[in-house]
């Protein structure tokens, strides 16, 4: 018997070393697979929220956005959820690598498979309405959520980017009107030459609209188009509450909604760019 054999066997005897029970390896393996599945599922949930937020936009109007369809896509893309998806896919990939035999697959194949799985499951979750529910849940429980994941009103309430949203006030005979935004600003909108046919059907005072154009200085805004409210931007009561109560952090529990049966986005004040409305 070799010297090494003696040493090893003596140590095994002296310390009464025994093989680790098989169930511990099975458990360890199962936990790794569960971790992998969990992160794929969370990635799928991220996909469902991304799909909901992307679908919750008026894609028919993307021609009015600077940069065209691509510019519009970059404007409405929920970057936080995209970053979360990248992170979750990475963790799922690392979990897979820890499984027995996981190293035998090429990295790009594993990452591709994880992304594909997340996409397929994400589409299913989105179809089941879980993307919308998760988005509403985050909105209701995380006060800062809408600041980092803008939706509807937040995307349109950006005058310097050429987008305005609000309600019509003081409709003039020449077609110009004052627009009061959710931030409490008032802009004087001058519909341009090419706005014809783009007016909302019910163009009257109190009507909520979106405006595409350019700020013209001193609170003026030259409109390229005046559009009706679109998906993700519910006309609102909520806006009236904001304007009259000034309570910008109020909860937006969907259960409290009236009329449309949709959740209302929370609205946060932007830097005043137009004339401030007098309360």
């Amino acid at each position: 018997m070799s010297e090494l054999t003696d040493k090893v066997l003596n140590e095994l005897r002296d310390k009464d070393v025994r093989p680790v029970p098989a169930w511990r390896f099975v458990l360890n393996s199962a936990l790794t697979w569960i971790g992998f599945g969990l992160f794929v599922l969370l990635g799928a949930q991220s996909v469902s929220i991304i799909l909901f937020l992307l679908s919750d936009n008026d894609w028919s109007e993307l021609g009015y956005f600077r940069g065209g369809p691509i510019g519009y896509a970059f404007t409405v893309l929920p970057y936080v959820w995209v970053a979360a998806l990248v992170l979750l896919v990475t963790i799922a990939y690392l979990e897979f690598r820890k499984t027995k035999g996981g190293y035998r697959y090429r990295s790009f194949a594993v990452i591709g498979a994880v992304v594909a799985l997340s996409m397929v499951a994400g589409v299913s979750l989105h179809s089941a309405g879980l993307g919308k529910r998760a988005d509403a849940m985050f909105e209701n429980h995380l006060p800062q959520y809408r600041r980092v994941v803008p939706r509807g009103i937040q995307i349109w309430d950006r005058p310097q980017a050429g987008r305005l949203v609000g309600e019509i006030e003081n409709l003039g005979e020449d077609g110009s009107f004052d627009l009061v935004t959710p931030s409490g600003e008032s802009w004087t909108v001058h519909p341009g030459k090419d706005h014809g046919g783009r007016m909302p059907p019910a163009f009257r005072e109190g009507e909520p609209v979106r405006v595409v154009g350019e700020p013209s200085g001193d609170g003026g805004f030259d409109a390229k188009a005046v559009l009706p409210w679109g998906p993700g931007i519910e006309p609102s009561q909520r806006m009236h509450q904001l304007r009259h109560n000034g309570n910008l952090e109020e909860s937006t529990d969907p259960a409290r909604n009236t009329g449309e049966g949709q959740s209302r986005p929370s609205v946060h004040p932007a830097q005043p760019l137009g004339r401030q409305i007098s309360q």
Binding site: L4, V8, E11, L12, V17, P19, V20, P21, F25
Partner: peptide
């Protein structure tokens, strides 16, 4: 090498 053999013995049921 000695430590490796002891570790191998301990994890012998992990060998598939």
């Amino acid at each position: 090498l000695q430590d490796a053999f002891i570790s191998a013995y301990r994890n012998l049921r992990d060998f598939d």
